[in-house]
Design a protein around this nucleic acid. Sequence first.
RNA 1: UCCGGCGUAGCUCAAUUGGCAGAGCGGGUGGCUGUUAACCACUAGGUUGUAGGUUCGAGUCCUACCGCCGGAGCCA
Length: 431
Amino acid sequence: MKNETYIADISQHKDQVVTVSGWLYNRRSSGKVHFLLVRDGTGIIQAVVGKKDVDEETFEKCKELPQESSLKVTGLVHEDHRAPGGFELHVNKVEIVHIAQDYPITPKEHGTTFLMDHRHLWLRSSKQHAILRVRHAIIRAARDFFDKKGFTLVDAPIFTPAACEGTSTLFETDYFGSKAYLTQSGQLYMEAAAMAFGKVYCFGPTFRAEKSKTRRHLTEFWMIEPEMAYCDLDGNMDIAEEFIEYIVQRILEENKEELKRLERDTSKLEKVQRPFPRISYDEAAKMLKDAGLDFVYGDDFGAPDETYISDQFDRPVMVHRYPAEVKAFYMKPDPADSTKALCVDVLAPEGYGEIIGGGQREDDYDKLIEKIKEHDLPMEAFEWYLDVRRYGSVPHAGFGMGIERAVAWICGLKHIRETIPFPRTISRIQP
RNA sequence: UCCGGCGUAGCUCAAUUGGCAGAGCGGGUGGCUGUUAACCACUAGGUUGUAGGUUCGAGUCCUACCGCCGGAGCCA
């Protein structure tokens, strides 16, 4: 009897009587008619409750129903330009499922701290809803991209015995009496997996215990990390730019409504098409020097440097061959200049900074041992990793993309903390 | 870790030179047949982050501490 439907599908039910199950987003009243804005997770629809159309008890209850109460509304789907969304429901039945207590997030301005303290409820508001839908779509597009190209998903462990890169601070945890650490990258495991499957990727959470207090950092974030056997730096950059182009174009196609809700300037995203500019570290350093920026040759780029470089282009820019000294131990040196590493950072436009870091790995057993010693890393922890160079070593490369930074860029958000459902930062582990 | 900023009602913010702690929203009561963050009237709501100090008098000035926000470094 009941024609249950989701608000997203409401246009298919024009002039039909349907039931929508959801929550009260907002309510306006005009004495003899109530306007209930009902959301169901797929959209928002205005339900019009006229005094003549329902019994008196229902009408009175609608009048004082608090925000975010759960309810089922049944009525005629009516096209009306006065309604937000173009369609409204002329209600003849209201079933109240639960009367909410006073809802803390009112339809007025709130500060970020307050909203983050109520993150579990903030997810219900339309902007956060849009962001997390785009996040979902980005993850789906990323996985589709690698799946279609014949990559195998190989999950990396979260508990690790030692640092992957040795530099960053790790979260330490007690592992049955011995120390274990939360992973900061699945890459080393992907290198081993690439020798088994050829093309692999992992997608999971990563952890950094650095006390970073900026809009670009979380202590827990998600990274997608492809790794390819028989691949060099150029091949790696080819995949990286194709990957980013694919994701951005998919989001432009499939998430128009969300991008509109987020007031994203999509003309900037439309320009994200291959080929991306590729410049060397030396070329980038010269750009900074010519611009008169305070930059010391040989150092890694700081946040203002990255912003300047990316501002010179209308699409992501790939900066390759950084000084080996500022990069991790597993990077392969450039045969043409051993002071440089065969690595690449992809800088997003509009000042969003580094969204991808990667490169070609050192595949020579002796040179890798030397690097581990140079970086003062515990050799025994890398024995298994050295096996990858002992048994059929091949040139290989890969990269990692931070999902949250990609979401922030594509959504045009100024802060990364809204790109993940429940952010973990240096000062927040609740809710 | 360093630098800067901010802590006033449930929320967002005012409060002049140190002189009666206020508004909007939200809550409550009543009104309104097309509202668009509806509107109108009335109403309740305060240990001004904490501790100390100066002063006749401190939200305001001083000292310390706590918390949060932003930036740097580090990185995705």
